[in-house]
Design a protein around this nucleic acid. Structure first.
Length: 426
DNA sequence: TCTGGGGTCCTAGGACCC
DNA sequence: TCTGGGGTCCTAGGACCC
């Protein structure tokens, strides 16, 4: 493997670990972090996992036992997690010849060194992140991304390894034993659907898949699964993209704290969501060419749920909040049935392309010809806060009744001056 | 009573062109 | 009126990820 080893570095129980950095009283206690609207569990501390709480469990089902379990729940605080993520990535990136940030809490890293040095580097990464950011990470090192993910899992599940595992330093027999035991769906890229289809072919464990003929797998399944087979056998074939490529779509979608039933309220929703989407476009220097608005009734209410959606092709690529808001609101007529209880809605911007100066306004020749409205709104919000300015309903000082609920949120410790933690010593 | 949000990649099939 | 083959682009939907 000595050629081009790859590390997968990820934070243990990331959201919970972020909460613990600023509230050490959470150490050792079961902690869960909830989805938007405090709906269901999205992250768990080890203690919470040990209690048998699964990801996706609705909070109202867990809540009655919370006191008895000494369980703490927090609303998700994405502002905090996003900022902590950037800090972790910066520290981890110092150790690699290249780095690919794969998700909010994990990145692939190119390493160099002998087998013995690799383990040391892994330990240095752990120590650096613990000291400079304060969260625990695990490191898995192998010759391909798929194997690095698998090795990271081994590091996580064996406390004796101290959070670092290099696949080639493990006895071959031991690796084979694990691969015989772990089901294929434990692999990166193999989900439940593919798992069922593989089982029908007699392929159950990771070891089974590793022995399969790559060409046959490609024929029966897909090129994606063929790559998994090759990577399991040490042939790296999933390329890494070091540069952050532009996004291809932007979605703003939320559940409501109380159902929305009228055209008027849904107009508010689409107006506000379209403006949030437009703000993200502007921030990323992009324009959209397609707009999709959608809504949904509850899957749990009994009867048939409905998920109406309308997609519009924009007359010209744009990030103009006025254009996007107008179109999003106009799309709801004929799509939304008044009197129906909608529990969620979303605005999706697609077919994104880089913004090209003022061209985005060329087809809308009015007195805004040379005005970058999105940029202007963005700078006002940056200075005076997210709710300082907006179009129509987006400019309401008081959030509407259906707005998201986050009753158990921690402060934005690292991104707002007024939320800065205070430390004192005696 | 109360059940998340935001993405990517691949494939198949249709429209269209030469 | 019949006949052929090859290619691109776009879109919808599936599967997967965290």
């Amino acid at each position: 493997m000595s050629r081009n080893p790859i590390a997968l570095v990820d934070v243990n129980n990331f959201y919970v670990s972020c909460e613990r950095v600023f509230d050490p009283s959470l150490e050792g206690r079961p902690v869960v972090v909830l989805s938007n609207n405090d709906g269901c569990v999205v992250a768990r501390s080890q203690e919470a996992k040990d209690l048998g709480i699964e990801t996706g469990t609705p909070w109202f089902k867990v809540k009655p036992s919370a006191a008895a379990w000494n369980l703490v729940a927090r609303s998700s605080n994405y502002e905090l997690y996003g900022d902590m993520s950037a800090r972790v990535m910066e520290v981890v990136g110092r150790f690699g010849t290249w780095q690919e940030v794969y998700s909010i809490d994990e990145s692939f890293l190119g390493l160099t060194g002998t087998e013995g040095q690799l383990r040391e580097i892994g330990e240095e990464i752990r120590a650096a992140v613990a000291r400079q950011v304060g969260v625990p990470v695990c490191v898995g090192i192998a010759s391909t991304k798929t194997l690095a993910k698998f090795t990271n899992r081994i590091a996580k599940q064996n406390a004796a390894m101290g959070g670092v595992c290099s696949l080639d330093s493990m006895p071959v027999g031991q690796v084979e034993t694990i691969q015989e035991r772990v089901p294929v769906t434990g692999l990166w890229g193999v989900g439940a659907r593919t798992g069922d289809r593989l089982k029908a072919q007699g392929i159950v464990s990771i070891a089974d898949l590793k022995r399969a003929d790559p060409l046959a797998i490609r024929k029966k399944f897909s090129v994606v699964l063929q790559r998994t087979v090759l990577e399991l056998n040490g042939t790296a074939c999933i390329p890494h993209t070091e540069e952050r490529v532009d996004k291809q779509q932007i979605m703003f979608s939320r559940s409501f704290s109380t159902p929305v039933t009228t055209l008027e309220e849904m107009g508010q929703v689409f107006s506000i969501y379209a403006q949030r989407g437009a703000a993200r476009l502007t921030a990323g220097g992009q324009c959209a060419t397609m707009l999709t608005v959608s809504a949904g009734t509850s899957r749990f209410a009994g009867g048939d749920a409905s998920f109406p959606a309308v997609t519009l092709r924009l007359p010209a690529p744009t990030s103009d909040p006025i254009v996007l808001t107008r179109l999003a609101v106009s799309a709801l007529r004929g799509m939304i049935v008044p009197g129906t209880s909608y529990v969620r809605a979303g605005v999706m911007l697609g077919g994104l392309e880089p913004a090209r100066g003022q061209e985005q306004f060329d087809t809308f020749v009015d007195d805004r010809e040379s005005l970058d409205l999105g940029g202007l709104l963005g700078s006002v919000r940056a200075k005076f806060g997210d709710t300082a300015i907006g179009l129509g309903a987006g400019g309401l000082a008081e959030p509407p009744g259906w707005s998201m609920k986050r009753e158990l949120s921690s402060p934005r410790y690292t991104t707002e001056w007024e939320d800065l933690p205070v430390v004192s010593a005696r």
